[in-house]
Amino acid sequence: MRSFNPNDILFLAQAALWTIALSLIAFFGGGIVGAILALWRISTLRVLRMVASGYIQIIQGMPLLIQLFIWYFGLNLLGMDLPALMAAAIALTLYSSAFFAEIWRGSIEAIPKGQWESAASLGLSRFEMLGYVIIPQALRLALPPTVGFMVQIVKNTSLTSLVGFVELARAGQLVNNVTFQPLPVFACVAVIYFSTCFPLSILSRWLERRTHGHRQPVRSA
């Protein structure tokens, strides 16, 4: 047994880089797939709506842990050797995409029908209505729940330890196993998690204020 020392903190900080990397993969991968799914959910084509909604139901109905196992152990059993990073990236991307899609669909649908109608009446195409009228307004509504879910993702990356990742939570366990000083070790882990998630909330509040920056004085002619 040895005591908790600065090297351990360095080790935790390095593990936190995995947490951050996995989170970023989930944000970007899940964000892109989620955006496409959200558009499918509100498509005029029935088949796209049905495919997207079926996919979302399945993904949302399964624990992330099980999805990680399916991509890691399941495909390995079938003879496909998926590296842990790949399996984690796929699982996190698909998992986040379903939740992002639902958050964004909800925000789009919360925009009053009159906005669609007046844009349509001016001759805008469906894509123009979405791009210039609906989505800019929906973004503001979507911001708080989106950031809320991103914070969830950061915490959920700890599940990847079960397919072999030494990310922040797993690193904390390892350090505790050799130091037997759970209080300082996990306090340190908690502080690192917090300092990863907190900037997200700050960013969100800042963006929210910015997208609502309508209150500049009226310019007179």
């Binding site: 009159g114 007046s118 307004q137």
Partner: peptide, 12 residues
């Protein structure tokens, strides 16, 4: 052109 009871201006 059409004008609605609820104006429906683009608020952003």
């Amino acid at each position: 052109g059409i004008v609605f009871q609820s104006y429906n201006l683009f608020p952003h």
